[in-house]
Nucleic acid binder design. Structure first.
Length: 142
RNA sequence: GCGGCGGGCCGGAUGGCCGCUCCUGCCCCUUGUGGCAGGGGAGGAAAGUCCGGACUCCAGGAAGCAACGGCGCCGGGUAACGCCCGGCCGGGGAAACCCGAGGGAAAGCGCCACAGAGAAGAGACCGCUGUCGGCUGUCGCCGGCAGCAAGGGUGAAACGGUGGGGCAAGAGCCCACCGCGGGACGGGCAACCGGACCGGCACGGCAAGCCCCGCCGGGAGCAAUGCCGAAUAGGGACCUCAGAGGGCCUUCACGGGCCCGGGGAUGCUUCCUCCCAGAGGUCCGGGUUGGCAGCUAGAGCCUGCCGGUAACGGCAGGCCCAGAGGAAUGGCCAUCGAACCGCCUUCGGGCGGGGAACAGAAUCCGGCUUACAGGCCCGCCGCGCGC
RNA sequence: CGGGCUAUGGCGCAGUCUGGUUAGCGCGUCCGUCUGGGGGACGGAAGGUCGCAGGUUCAAAUCCUGCUAGCCCGA
């Protein structure tokens, strides 16, 4: 991206409620979970759409972060869809352990063209901001 | 050197850091959704799902008939094919070469619009010829009868073509050549090719219209199928096959054996083997939404030799080459880098920009078809120049 | 994995099986007339590579083959 001087990306700011480093991120598999997440909150970014939902008290896996990925046929052919999912998986892997919250479900939805081609560092930044916005929104709402 | 034709192959490279998945080995006071190390990890089309198989279930197999579907020059290859190779015939091209669903229209039915006189075993509109009559000075015109089908015209197609003889005018009426039909004989495994001689021409097209002939095909599909676990009340209602049969031998009896009969696929029928005294289906209610096998060693890949014009086959040696399951094979960076664009050029190239097509396994193979930036190699044809 | 349907003027549909004559119908569009104007009625007109590419045939929207796009079933 930049010249050779661009050493590393900005050092990650220790998020306020920094969770345990060994936190696991589970994969969302059930259709019902996807539907519930879609009905909860959402936030659109240029590269993807983030849906998020805090699980109820009696749901299992209390301390876990769960995440699912959606890339429908609208995103493109198999190549575009898989590429979009791979990149979404990667930003989730890099950002969610530090910036996600335990007990939440997240779903990342791919968009046509953009998800597969947008600058990677920018998408990471957008995910951090979207997570922050949704969490703040919930605190104020409740 | 230029233009063209055919075939084969490749389809970004190297390294670093961080991940995913499978396999193997090791480690553990954390036997876990664990850790560490090493190794494997998309394609020529993985695609469309258009053919052919393997495999599994419908119990296994063989045969006939009917229906339906597919295929269709000949020979070969193959597990098989609608694929491939070689050949034949027809068409295109100056050639290399390319294209062809290419059996049967003298078994039958059907169709051939419009135009045209006439469209299937047809026809006489304009015409041509003779003769008779009328008109007329003549050329000629009109009408009747008889003969003709050459010329004009229509059409996609008009019942051989060209030239000559012949005739009142004409016509395969006769002749030559070409075409067509038959064909002794010769060549070829065959499709087919050549063809002495004979026939005077009769036999239009469409079968990707019905059809006839020959060949092939039972159905469903890895969400097939098998096993384990968990859960529940192995619950309830209804329906189907059905006859829970008969005889004989043996035994005191229980039981066993044989025969007839019944059932066990998904058109009907026959035969052989095997199996059965229970099996199957629908609906209501409840539970589960897990795991394992199938799952990758195969019509496999590489090399060499041999057979074959070739497709391909045989033998020997070597190799192990993705196995996921909301679905791995990735992300980022650096260097090198093709197309393409700009500038310079001593036409060899140099400098800068630029950054890689179509597309991703889902049971597995053999084909076909379609998409594809660009590059490499081989062979052939034509033209020009030089030796 | 298996099966089916559709594509025709701007829109909705016929025609395709059984090939041929002007590819037709309704709505819409445009022009004109009636009205002071609008609406409406009447008269007239324009507008179609029949999804794409090959093939069969004298002739193809129609028959055959291969593609493309959209939709719907079943396991």
């Amino acid at each position: 991206m930049h010249g050779p001087s661009g050493t590393r990306e900005p050092v990650e700011r220790p998020a306020a409620p920094c969770p345990a480093a060994s936190i696991r991120v589970e994969r969302l598999k059930r259709r019902a979970d996807f539907l519930r997440a879609a009905r909860a909150q959402r936030r659109a970014t240029p590269g993807f759409i983030l849906q998020a939902r805090r699980r109820g008290e009696n749901e299992p896996d209390e301390g876990r972060i769960r995440v699912g990925f959606t890339a429908s046929k609208k995103v493109g052919g198999a190549v575009q869809r898989n590429r979009a999912k791979r990149r979404l998986r990667e930003i989730a892997r890099l950002e969610l352990p530090a910036h996600g919250r335990p007990g939440w479900d997240y779903v990342l939805v791919g968009r046509r063209e953009v998800t597969a081609s947008r600058d990677f560092a920018t998408m990471r930044e957008e995910l951090r901001r979207a997570l922050e916005a949704l969490h703040r929104n919930t605190r104020e709402g409740k």
